[in-house]
């Protein structure tokens, strides 16, 4: 139980503190850089709000590859969607997680049946493992991957796996598993601001900025 207390207490608290501070540090560190804009005349018909629209179109459009790329991007896209949606379901639609968020923020919403979430968790874990295998076997990904990529993968998979073990009581006593699960989340939170997981926030800007730029030119987003 002491491990669980450590996990629920100091570990999670310091992780949250690091997470919040780190995320803000990184986001503000980026957003406070000068905004370099080239004030060219927009393509005719693209109103000022068109660029804003482009921003959102960019965010939305890149959820799925363009037709020309589907064949090459199929695995990455489907697998990516599987674990992203899986993570979303597991993180945000599992009752204990909602309770955690409610405790932290006061916000709550309906949950999914635990059994369903568990099943999604298994699929998510499998999908993440597939992603790793792909990363290791695909020459391109292997070449461009760094510690950041592998470690981010690890800290993402770890809470899923430990969470699955915890709910199914496999391997150790529940409180130990829960503690390990919480510690793995703490690790995730600590790593989050410093690794590539920040794309969870930054995609809004990167997709949006390109969307706006392309919209401005009347080009394909």
């Amino acid at each position: 139980m002491e491990l669980l207390e450590f996990a629920r207490g100091p570990a999670l608290q310091s992780a949250m503190v690091i997470f919040v501070a780190g995320v803000l540090w990184r986001i503000i560190g980026i957003l406070a850089l000068p905004f370099i804009s080239i004030p060219s005349r927009a393509r005719k018909g693209v109103l000022p709000e068109g660029e804003v629209k482009g921003w959102f179109e960019g965010i939305w459009r890149r959820m799925w590859p363009h037709k020309s790329f589907i064949r090459q991007a199929l695995f990455s896209t489907i697998n990516g969607h599987v674990y992203h949606i899986g993570l979303f379901v597991v993180v945000f639609l599992f009752a204990p997680h909602i309770a955690f968020i409610k405790d932290l923020t006061g916000l709550s919403w309906a949950s999914l049946p635990s059994n369903l979430v568990n099943a999604v968790g298994v699929v998510t874990a499998a999908s993440l493992i597939a992603a790793l295998i792909h990363r290791l076997t695909n020459p391109v990904q292997r070449l461009i991957s760094t510690f950041n990529d592998y470690f981010s993968w690890f800290v993402t998979l770890a809470p899923v796996l430990t969470g699955l073990l915890a709910v199914s009581h496999l391997g150790a006593r529940y409180e130990t598993l829960l503690a390990i699960h919480l510690l793995s989340i703490a690790l995730l939170l600590i790593w989050f601001p410093f690794g590539k997981l920040m794309h969870a926030f930054l995609f809004v800007v990167s997709r949006g900025a390109t969307g706006a730029r392309m919209k401005h030119r009347g080009a394909q987003i």
Binding site: F35, Q141, D149, K196, H199, A209
Partner: peptide
């Protein structure tokens, strides 16, 4: 490096696509 280029630098997930 302005805001946009910086964000590009920060958001690659190394998917290799």
């Amino acid at each position: 490096f302005g805001l946009t280029a910086a964000t590009y630098m920060e958001s690659c997930v190394k998917c290799g696509l």
